[in-house]
């Protein structure tokens, strides 16, 4: 694997993790009494890994990224569990939203290579599963299924918007 790709990914992971911990964790707010809205943007660090990275490695990276967020959020295992689930789904989602011309060896999931429609469906599938898993693990009981869904949908939309802003502002060039 090219050295610059590795460096780019490591830098991206570190920047996104710090941004999540320092900025976005403190931005969560409530709507009414029941709905907690969280800005969860660090999944982008896992989703933007190159397509050909082996799934086993993605799973391990996701585990440690989640663990890192958990240490700062004081919820050991919750983010990690959601991240690992999403990393597992990521592999399947490549097959679901496969572009017409298939994937190349050097492909990186971004808007420039695959287009807006592909990117939004790819990010949406994975992000939604991640946030749903996160709130399910946090609440940990099915009594609040309605709350979980409301939290998931609201957090999903605000996070999606922020992720797209980040993508448009920092388009990485390879």
């Amino acid at each position: 694997m090219n050295n610059s790709i590795i460096t780019t990914n490591i830098v991206r992971i570190i920047v996104l993790l710090l941004a999540q911990v320092w900025i976005f964790n403190s931005m969560s707010f409530n709507i009414g009494v029941n709905i907690d809205v969280h800005f969860i943007i660090y999944p982008l660090a896992i989703l933007a890994l190159p397509v050909r990275v082996p799934t086993a490695l993605v799973l391990i990276i996701a585990f440690f990224i989640g663990l890192f967020i958990d240490v700062f959020d004081n919820s050991l295992g919750v983010h990690a569990g959601a991240s690992v689930l999403m990393a597992y789904i990521r592999n399947l989602s490549f097959a679901i939203v496969e572009p017409f011309d298939g994937y190349n060896v050097n492909d990186v999931p971004n808007i420039k290579r695959f287009g807006f429609a592909w990117f939004i469906s790819y990010i949406s599938i994975n992000l939604f599963i991640h946030i749903l898993a996160y709130f399910s693990f946090e609440v940990f009981t099915y009594i609040y299924i309605l709350d979980i869904l409301l939290n998931t949908i609201t957090s999903f939309f605000v996070s999606l918007i922020v992720i797209f802003l980040i993508q448009f502002i920092f388009t990485t060039k390879y």
Binding site: T55, L59, F63, L76, G77, V78, A80, G81, V84, F137
Partner: peptide, 20 residues
Amino acid sequence: VHILFVVLEIICFNLIIRYN
């Protein structure tokens, strides 16, 4: 890969239940 996924999730659930 699937085994690794299951193992990691079990670790996560262990952490969740032990520390929260």
